[in-house]
Write a protein that binds this DNA or RNA. Sequence first.
DNA 1: CAATAAATGCAACGATGTTGCAAAATGAAT
DNA 2: ATTCATTTTGCAACATCGTTGCATTTATTG
Lengths: 136, 136
Amino acid sequence: MKATHILQHHQLKCTECRIGILNVLLEADAALTENQVKEALHNKFDRTTFYRSFKTLVETGVLHSITLHDSTLYMVNAGENAGHEHYHFYCSACHKLLCIHPQKKENIALPDGFKIKQTDITFEGVCKTCNKTEKR
Amino acid sequence: MKATHILQHHQLKCTECRIGILNVLLEADAALTENQVKEALHNKFDRTTFYRSFKTLVETGVLHSITLHDSTLYMVNAGENAGHEHYHFYCSACHKLLCIHPQKKENIALPDGFKIKQTDITFEGVCKTCNKTEKR
DNA sequence: CAATAAATGCAACGATGTTGCAAAATGAAT
DNA sequence: ATTCATTTTGCAACATCGTTGCATTTATTG
Ligand SMILES: [Mn+2]
Ligand SMILES: [Mn+2]
Ligand SMILES: [Zn+2]
Ligand SMILES: [Zn+2]
């Protein structure tokens, strides 16, 4: 997926900052913080610009975020992530936050009277990769 | 449950600030932010003292917290909450965050290789009370 | 009540969220 | 390619929150 295509599809101007953010996140194998992206781009942009870019990208649905352990992590809504509800998995070994798309959606039962509009599920544990490494 | 009993049980000094925080949270019917508790106590204590009190109370397991919509909410680990994993429900009508203890624990299936240590589940929707009110 | 350890209040600083505004960049139209 | 309207950017400024050091006050124990 190309950064410029994503931006155009959302009717957003293709600015250097937005393209940079998207490229970093598209290549990442896990969610990243604003500062991690900023550093990956060698602090090329002002922090206000960064702040506003992330805000716009989340509001328009280009990115989604999750807050974990007092820091906010961002991911691109591309491919499987686009629109679909999914789980998040934080690996306490490699400290990566991963999006997980399960085969089947679970249906959690709540007491009578509660109307559920959205469900957020976050796991903490050891990821597939780290488990393999440990077993060797 | 008495605030002083809880503090003594955790080998914490019964200071005015801690007792105040606990009393406010014990009487609340939903989770509260640090500032909400602070205001309930008429800003009697310095914000540093407040900050350190919450930190201590969470670290020792007297309270637990959840971050939702960029704000951190606190609840007492008393009664049903004590030790037990439970769900959290945010009502978009009354804006309350509630702890929910389900009858049976669901078991969510993840792809092979992922070892789960902890699961956090947060719902968003309309709570029991607000649903009743709406239907009238 | 006296002694000791812990908690508090205050000052200070860093990180982060947020806004206003002038300068620069973008995208569309010529 | 040049022009123009609109959006984005960078910078300054301010608010809030997290965090620490340190002197003073408080809680607990004997
Ligand atoms: Mn995700
Ligand atoms: Mn809870
Ligand atoms: Zn891992
Ligand atoms: Zn409600």
